[in-house]
Design a protein around this nucleic acid. Structure first.
Length: 883
RNA sequence: GGGCGGUUAGCUCAGUUGGUUAGAGCGCUGGUCUCACAUACCAGAGGUCGUAGGUUCGAAUCCUAUACUGCCCA
């Protein structure tokens, strides 16, 4: 039962996590009573390891889950991982590269086998780390996006959408990553402003001795130019429409066309049109039925259309083309220009807009009901600022390119008959064409990883089977995620949920901030500013780490994390630990019971009544804060209450009773109060700090359950609210504060006992009753009451109606004390002026609510009183000085 | 270019519907190894709430403009 002086989380965390797990406390049971509360985890990538974003995300989810579970809900938190197509494939490709292998040399089947192998070995890292964080997920329901069940569901969804005409195959401009050698969706190409140049190139006019000058940022694509476009309204170039220019280097004749897309103010107002390598050019090409000429290979090198540049890398080619144009006198000028460049979100390679045959999902029909759902608040997005962002994207949504030219993922369930060109979309593997009996060939591509993620809330619950889980837990109650995947994931889940479940996937979405470093920079490996959550956990303990994240998790803000911050919270954990060490010695009684709050009410010891009232308020605030996703408020309320009120005041005030220095109060009741308050503190803290609270809970003389995590969350008892006691306590505390302040300011050492005098009419009885406690906490020899004969040569302080005099002759520096009073008076004077101008303002008196007027008047009067006392006191001191 | 945030103490941030003498943590200064805790205790200093207008009896809070800064989309 010994408790170390300092809390050491090592060992304790593991012990309790195993205890919870072995006892099945994480498991949701559909037969359990209570309103269902369900949540699905944003599945981390199997390749991943826990970073700060995960840590925050899962801490918040765990807080809510633990809270709901304790509050009597039938709580389910479904965990799992995402196969993360491109990311995982890249990782495994790097692995096999060490053995001198490539995926091509291995072949598709062998390669996928290797990925599975790798997944089995390393894929569990993140799950273990989530456990380390304390996550109370139902591990018996853990899912992986490539599980047999989920794979089946993905096929089902694809086939249904295909049959409904929402999935189609088309030749269109997509973002191509030459390194990953796959198409990407618009979201997967991250736009980045890059310093580049605007090249002005002369295109000689056919049969005339003049040229049209085009401005382009990408001269290497000129080999694919099949027209030059001008705005038909542009008087400068109108006349050229219908004529031809000669494409330099290749010396090909291309038409000059008129198209209103051309911006007359950009560059020269003449646009080179490359339909195969630019979306807008492609659209122009379609309108004018232009030829389409691709100039690059899949790996980003130039193809045969780039004549003598064939085989050269696209960026090298850009340089060389510019040189050649310069030599030929066709380069007019080069200007620096900031251009937006798309980069692959997985490997940061500059993506190539390229014409390619891909599978697309029509988004408009899916988006419309999803917009409605949020508008009608069937899905609430919190903070609501993100609603706007959601609407903005959804209203301008474009079709989603869902095919990827990689191997790791859900293979597109489409089968082609090469003989008769029939196409089948099928959940089952098809081998032969139903029409011509020819051998079928499955589409080699796989689906975008986010396709399966979009189905996560219902596939994890067993869809397309009509499972009990699905009935009980869908729609899920809440989704907690970062804003970075609002479009990637959240929006798509809403669309898919509505389509396939005919209901929203979740009621609430709580969007949290991004964790940044102490300077506000995004944490990234390349910046080297990454704080590893596991290092922090090892160093400061999981509870301190979780609590730190929670304290900082204000809505809609970035979170700047620094180690000092966590260190401070580590100290708080230790404070709780030590409060427990003390409290447990006071309540070390196996027969201790608190049957009802009525017996607590019997206490006539003011600090008891006060702390009961205060803890009641804290229960209310913590509960409301968590319910409103104001996690930082919950943490801060607890921090302040426990440290300042419970430890600094309450525990100090009960010491004289508990140590037998006074015996006028019934210790038996106080013990119950300590137990009640402390137990509530532990329970309120538990969702945020699961481990230390369990460790202490298990040491309680009497427990209400096998584990704190399945005990019931505190509920307020309004009868314990006692404003009168709170007011009385504030008088006691205020009086002590004033004396301590005088001691501190006048430099009286803590070990010197002094005398103090008080003058008060209203609180004489109160102060008299608790004078012993005031003497203890303010380190007084004597505390006496005075009426008229105020001690001269005394420092003075005032709290409410209580005037406090501390004779200081010989103890202090009189001029310094005068200075202290003058400083105080100055502050008061300003405040008095402010109040005076208010209460003498007729419009204020006329328009402000009565209570505000009264309040101000009262403040004014008491301020005036206080000032008079201080002025008198100052006079007295001055006399001393004069003597 | 369009949109959305942010600007409050030396630092990092709270401040819910306009009425507090504007708060916290860290840091800083001074004092204490006081029988739970020096990862502690006690006390203190420090802010005209980005700037300029406006609405109001009353603005950190609402409106307008502006500066700086961050993010998202194109």
């Amino acid at each position: 039962m010994d408790m170390e002086k300092t809390y050491d989380p090592h060992g304790i965390e593991k012990k309790w996590y195993e205890y919870w797990n072995e006892n099945g406390f994480f498991k949701a049971d559909i037969n359990r009573e209570g309103e269902p509360f369900s949540m699905v985890i944003p599945p981390p990538n199997v390749t991943g390891s826990l970073h700060m974003g995960h840590a925050l995300n899962n801490t918040l989810q765990d807080i809510v889950t633990r809270y709901k579970r304790m509050a009597g809900f039938n709580a389910l938190w479904v965990p799992g991982t995402d196969h993360a197509g491109i990311a995982t494939q890249n990782v495994v490709e790097r692995e096999i590269a060490k053995e001198g292998l490539t995926r091509e040399s291995l072949g598709r089947e062998k390669f996928i086998e290797r990925v599975w192998q790798w997944k089995e070995q390393s894929g569990n890292t993140i799950i273990e780390q989530l456990k380390r964080l304390g996550s109370s997920c139902d591990w018996s329901r853990e899912r992986f996006t490539m599980d047999a069940g989920l794979t089946r569901a993905v096929k089902e969804v694809f086939v249904r959408l295909y049959n409904d005409g929402l999935i189609y195959r088309d030749n269109y401009i997509i973002n191509w990553c030459p390194r990953c050698k796959t198409a990407l969706s618009d979201l997967e190409a991250e736009h980045e402003e890059t310093a580049g140049f605007l090249y002005y190139i002369k295109y000689p006019c056919e049969g005339r001795d003049e040229s049209l000058v085009v401005a382009t940022t990408r001269p290497e694509t000129m080999f694919g130019d099949t027209a030059v476009a001008v705005n038909p309204e542009d008087p400068r170039y109108k006349k050229f429409i219908g004529s031809f220019v000669i494409l330099p280097i290749v010396n090909k004749k291309i038409p000059v066309i008129g198209d209103s897309y051309v911006d007359v103010s950009f560059g020269t107002g003449i646009l080179k049109v490359t339909p195969a390598h630019d979306l807008n050019d492609f659209e122009i090409g379609k309108r004018h039925k232009l030829d389409i000429v691709k100039v690059m290979n899949d790996d980003g090198t130039m193809n045969e259309n780039a004549v003598h540049y064939c085989g050269m890398d696209r960026f090298e080619c850009r340089k060389k083309v510019v040189e050649e144009l310069k030599e030929k006198g066709l380069l007019l000028k080069i200007e620096p220009y900031a251009l937006g460049v798309g980069k692959c979100y997985r490997c940061k390679t500059v993506v190539e807009p390229a014409l390619s045959t891909q599978w697309f999902l029509k988004m408009k029909p899916l988006a419309i009901p999803a917009i409605e759902a949020v508008k009608q608040h069937r899905v609430r997005i919190i903070p609501d600022m993100w609603e706007k962002v959601y609407f903005d994207w959804m209203e301008n949504i474009r079709d989603w390119c869902i095919s990827r030219q990689i191997w790791w993922g859900h293979r597109i369930p489409v089968f082609y008959c090469d003989a008769c060109e029939e196409v089948y979309a099928s959940v089952d593997e098809l081998e032969y064409c139903k029409r011509c009996n020819g051998r079928l060939r499955q589409d080699p591509d796989v689906l975008d990883t986010w396709f399966s993620s979009a189905l996560w809330p219902f596939t994890t619950l067993g869809w397309p089977e009509e499972t009990e889980d699905l009935k009980k837990f869908y729609p899920t109650s809440l989704l907690i995620t970062g804003f970075d995947i609002l479009f990637f994931w959240v929006a798509r889940m809403i669309m898919m949920g509505l389509r396939f479940m005919k209901d929203v996937p979740f009621r609430d979405v709580y969007i949290h901030a991004l964790v940044r470093d102490a300077e506000g920079k995004k944490m990234s490996k390349s910046r080297g500013n990454v704080i590893d959550p596991l290092v922090i956990i090892e160093k400061y303990g999981t509870d301190a780490f979780r609590f730190s994240l929670t304290m900082l998790a204000a809505q809609g803000r970035d979170i700047l994390l620094s180690e000092e911050r966590i260190e401070g919270v580590r100290n708080f954990v230790n404070k709780i630990w030590n409060a427990a060490r003390l409290a447990l010695t006071f309540i070390d009684d196996p027969n201790l019971t608190v049957d009802n709050t009525e017996e607590l009410k019997k206490s006539n010891f003011l600090p008891d009544k006060w702390i009961l009232s205060r803890v009641t308020n804290v229960i209310k605030e913590v509960t409301e804060s968590i319910n409103n996703y104001r996690f930082n408020d919950a943490a801060n309320v607890l921090y302040g209450f426990i440290w300042r009120e419970f430890c600094d005041w309450y525990l100090e005030l009960i010491k004289p009773n508990m140590y037998g220095k006074v015996d006028i109060f019934d210790i038996a009741i106080t013990k119950k109060v300590i137990y009640y308050v402390f137990l509530n503190i532990l329970k309120l803290l538990h969702p945020i700090m699961p481990f230390v609270t369990e460790e202490i809970y298990q040491r309680l003389p009497v427990k209400d359950n096998k584990s704190i995590m399945i005990s019931s969350f505190p509920v307020i008892d309004k009868n314990l609210t006692d404003y009168e006691s709170e007011r009385d306590m504030s008088i006691i505390m205020g009086t002590i504060d004033v004396i301590r302040n005088i001691r501190g300011e006048t430099g009286i050492a803590p070990n010197i006992k002094i005398n103090a005098f008080v003058r008060t009419e209203r609180y004489k009885g109160l102060i008299n009753s608790y004078s012993f406690y005031i003497k203890e906490l303010a380190k007084l020899q004597e505390l006496s009451f005075v009426i008229q004969n105020i001690p001269e040569k005394a420092a003075i302080g005032i709290y409410d109606d209580v005037e406090i005099f501390v004779p200081v002759e010989g103890l202090i520096d009189v001029p310094k004390e005068i200075g202290r009073i003058e400083k105080e008076l100055l502050k008061m004077e300003e405040e008095l002026k402010r109040l005076e101008s208010k209460i003498k303002n007729p419009s204020f008196l006329e328009k402000a609510p009565e209570e505000v007027i009264n309040k101000n008047k009262m403040q004014y009067n008491s301020m005036l009183e206080k000032m008079n006392i201080l002025i008198k006191s100052k006079e007295t001191l001055k006399k001393i000085l004069g003597d």
